[in-house]
Structures are given as structure tokens and as C-alpha cells.
């Protein structure tokens, strides 16, 4: 039994006994997780381990069978204005008839509302968010003309426009070029420096130490969580991946203490 602190107003995201099921098999089973404030956290696990499912169920995008989730000490529904979300790039149709700036402005929805008009100031803000991800020249482009990396940057700009305290990203580095990965990491580290919290589903074990300071290891059940130095260990990785990681791969992760 692991004792976990009760969620406080400082805890950006915590889950208790979260269980999600597709059909008969649970995809996420009775997971407890606590993500610290003002840090960059990675959700790590093999394919099908329920990483994205955990994130989506926490946000109420897919229904959970049981469990409680709190965001800054309140239910998700009451903290929506403090959450920014970057879904998987492949989850939307990039042939949708719209422009880059239009997508970024979707992030302003909670400030504009259903019927409010976008003021010039808001449009200016959306442009500034595009600028932060290095896409200021692409505002009027049709989104279908973007490369994978550019699509990911636009999604990040949309999250920035949400002006949140907690940023949740689902595989932000999947299928993007090196320059984009660098640009995204820089933006995320800047967010952390501004006192925001970042939680990302992450695939590439070799960059965990470089990018993140907290890890959450999951394979349907929670395997481990904690700071990178204490929880990102060979033992925990073996437990998470069930021996599917080769010893040479483990060695390459560099400085993993066993």
C-alpha cells in the first residue's frame, strides 16, 4: 500500500482508483496518480498500456468506470478554464476547411463564449501564440498544407491560447521533425519556468531524462511514479515493459541506476 497525499489546491492533477474499460478488458485499472506542480511530467508505458486512455479519462473525454480525478483540488468540470489540452495530431481531419489562425483561435473559446465576438486584442493574442511556436508566417494557411511537425506546433499554439495552468499533451513528439521537437520542448520548459505544470504522454525513453523531471509509469495498472532520479529506474522500466526492453536499450538510457 502506497500512501499518496490528498489532492490539494496546489496539485494540478491527481487521480484515485481510476478504472476505464473498452468492452470487457480494463484498459486502465484502479490507477492512483499525482502530478506535481510547476514541473514537467511524463506518462510512460508500452503500446496499449493505457497512457492516452488515462489522460482522456482524467479529462472526461472518455467515460470512466470508477475513480475520482481532481484538478487543482476541484473536479475537472470546475477547473476547465485552467486546463489546456493537446490531443494526438492524428485524431483530427487535417482536410477540415479552416486556416491555421482559426484553429489557434479555437483555444480562445472559453474567453469568447458561444456567441461573443473575437476582439482585435484576442486576434492579436492568437497571433502571438503562433509566434511563440515559430509559426507566425503561417496564420492564413489552409491547415491541410502543413507538415506533421507544423500541425503539432499549431496544436501547441492553440493550447497556449487557452492560457491555462495545467498543460496536458498526448504524444506531442510523435512523428515530428527534430526542429519541431526542439521548439516544443523549449516552449514547454518556458511554461514550467512561468510556474505552469506540464503532463505529457511520452514514447521516447531516451529523452525522458533530458526533458522531464517527474515520471509516471503505467501498464494498465500503475507501476511507479516519482521524480526522474528515483522512479525512472531499470527495475521499474522492466516492470512496466515486462522485459520487452533489451538490455542494450536499457544501458543506452544512460545513468539508469538499478
Amino acid at each position: 500500500m502506497v500512501l499518496t497525499p490528498a489532492p490539494t489546491a496546489e496539485t494540478p492533477l491527481s487521480a484515485r482508483g481510476l478504472t476505464v474499460s473498452y468492452g470487457e478488458k480494463p484498459a486502465v485499472f484502479s490507477v492512483d496518480a499525482t502530478f506535481p506542480a510547476q514541473s514537467m511530467s511524463a506518462i510512460i508505458g508500452p503500446n496499449g498500456a493505457g497512457k492516452s486512455t488515462f489522460l482522456k479519462a482524467s479529462l472526461g473525454i472518455i467515460p470512466r468506470l470508477s475513480g475520482d480525478v481532481s484538478v487543482f483540488g476541484t473536479p475537472v468540470e470546475k477547473a476547465r478554464h485552467r486546463i489546456a489540452y493537446v490531443p494526438q495530431r492524428a485524431s483530427v481531419d487535417w482536410d477540415f476547411p479552416t486556416t491555421v489562425i482559426d484553429v489557434v483561435q479555437m483555444g480562445l473559446y472559453r474567453k469568447v463564449g458561444l456567441l461573443g465576438r473575437l476582439s482585435g486584442q484576442m486576434t492579436h493574442r492568437a497571433r502571438a501564440c503562433l509566434d511563440r511556436v515559430g509559426m507566425s508566417d503561417f496564420g492564413d494557411r489552409q491547415i491541410g498544407q502543413l507538415s506533421g511537425g507544423q500541425q503539432q506546433r499549431v496544436f501547441l499554439a492553440r493550447a497556449l491560447a487557452q492560457d491555462a495552468d495545467l498543460y496536458l499533451l498526448d504524444e506531442p513528439f510523435a512523428g515530428v521533425d527534430a526542429a519541431t521537437e526542439r521548439a516544443i520542448v523549449d516552449v514547454l520548459k518556458l511554461l514550467k519556468a512561468e510556474g505552469k505544470s506540464v503532463v505529457a504522454v511520452h514514447h521516447d525513453l531516451s529523452t525522458v531524462r533530458e526533458y522531464f523531471d517527474h515520471v509516471f509509469l503505467i501498464n494498465v495498472r500503475r507501476v511507479a511514479e516519482g521524480s526522474v532520479t528515483t522512479a525512472f529506474t531499470t527495475e521499474n522500466l522492466n516492470a512496466t515493459y515486462g522485459g520487452r526492453l533489451a538490455a542494450t536499450h536499457m544501458a543506452k538510457l544512460g545513468g539508469v541506476a538499478s
Binding site: I61, Y109, R158
Partner: peptide
């Protein structure tokens, strides 16, 4: 009336849900 909802939810349903 529902233009903005329709547009956001049609383009990106999960993002729309997170927005409430």
C-alpha cells in the same frame, strides 16, 4: 447560435469536450 460549438466539435471532438 451554435456555429462555434458545431465548428469546434466537428473539427476536434475531444478538444471540444475539454473546453466544456
Amino acid at each position: 447560435i451554435f456555429w462555434r460549438w458545431l465548428k469546434i466539435a466537428t473539427f476536434d471532438e475531444s478538444f471540444a469536450q475539454v473546453l466544456g
